[in-house]
């Protein structure tokens, strides 16, 4: 769409933007997002203030939400269905897994609505449209960090009691894994949001799709609780399963890890990210005409 050249010219930097009908190749415009990084941060802050404005408990909801859902899963999967947690204390297993999953799901969910929810902005002013998904990504990461306030003490207590056996040297890998997961969510979300500008049907699929995806991602059960077979190998192909299991292996000492399958997941994440960004940059150019 354009080329921005910064450079000399009578003291002030000169900019040149060329607008043409079609672009060749993938244009991500990540550099421009970086120049608008203050906007990304402000959008992130805005999401936080707006979500918890005029609520009694405020950001406490970030903690309460996974507490409730992990209690439910503990009851349904742990007590009723009797699926184990691979020796990990139930509450920690469900809470940590849910927190990780919700980070992914949030990143997917908010970004799937990018074009629809920001239509009023996009139709009035230009800024790199990817700023909005990136701020969604930041919000999901931040929420997870807040949830660590509960997870960390719990984890430490169980660690000291010797109930869990984490792979401590691998802990520094954790942020990378979380980032990968969050990016995966963002990529799928961005891809969906680009398609929803044309086909609103997809909006309804997102909700159903994410909850199905959760059960296909070994979130509320450990992967080795599944009998080996076609279903299990299918589920291991899911990149979220791989990240999930790896995170649990590192932090809780429980989980299956296969390097080829994990690398396949990394490749898929990268592919989806590029595809998402490419479709997004294609759609953002004319979305104003279709929405």
């Amino acid at each position: 769409m354009m080329s921005v050249k910064g450079g000399g010219g009578s003291g002030t930097p000169s900019y040149h933007v060329r607008l043409v009908p079609k672009t060749r190749g993938i244009h991500l415009g990540l550099g421009e997002v970086w120049r608008y990084r203050d906007l990304v941060l402000l959008l992130t802050k805005k999401t936080f203030t707006m979500t918890y404005q005029q609520t009694l408990l405020g950001p406490l909801w970030i903690l309460l939400h996974p507490v409730f859902s992990s209690l439910v899963h503990m009851l349904v999967f742990g007590r009723i269905a009797g699926i184990g947690t691979g020796g990990v204390p139930g509450i920690l297993f469900y809470f940590a897994s849910m927190a990780v999953w919700e980070m992914f799901a949030y990143s997917l969910h908010t970004n799937a609505q990018t074009f629809i929810s920001s239509a009023h902005l996009f139709s009035k002013v230009y800024f790199p449209r990817l700023s909005v998904p990136f701020s969604g990504l930041l919000v999901s990461l931040l929420k997870f960090c807040i949830q660590l306030i509960v997870i960390l003490p719990m984890w430490t207590v169980y660690l000291i009691r010797g109930d869990i056996h984490p792979v401590l040297p691998a802990l520094p890998l954790l942020p990378l894994l979380l980032l990968q997961l969050s990016m995966l969510g963002m990529s799928v979300g961005v891809l969906l949001s680009s398609l929803t500008t044309r086909y609103r049907d997809l909006m309804h699929l997102v909700g159903v799709g994410t909850s199905l995806w959760m059960y296909a991602s070994a979130v509320v059960y450990p992967l080795d609780a599944l009998p080996p077979g076609r279903l299990r190998s299918l589920i291991t192909l899911n990149p979220v399963t791989q990240i999930m299991e790896l995170i649990r292996r590192i932090t809780l000492g429980e989980g299956m890890f296969s390097l080829p399958r994990y690398l396949f997941g990394v490749a898929l994440t990268l592919l989806l990210f590029l595809a998402g960004a490419a479709v997004f940059s294609h759609v953002e150019r004319t979305f104003e005409d279709t929405i």
Binding site: M1, M2, S14, Y15, H16, V17, R18, L19, V20, P21, H120, L121, F122, S123, K124, V125, Y126, R285, T286, E288, D289
Partner: peptide, 29 residues
């Protein structure tokens, strides 16, 4: 809208030399 880069042209070329600030509405955002 095209000059403000909100939508892309169907045909033709636009060259903008300089930073553009567009106000198609007051108080956007």
């Amino acid at each position: 809208k095209i000059l403000s880069r909100i939508t892309a042209p169907t045909e033709g070329v636009v060259d903008l030399y300089g930073r553009v600030s567009s106000m198609l509405e007051v108080g956007t955002g």
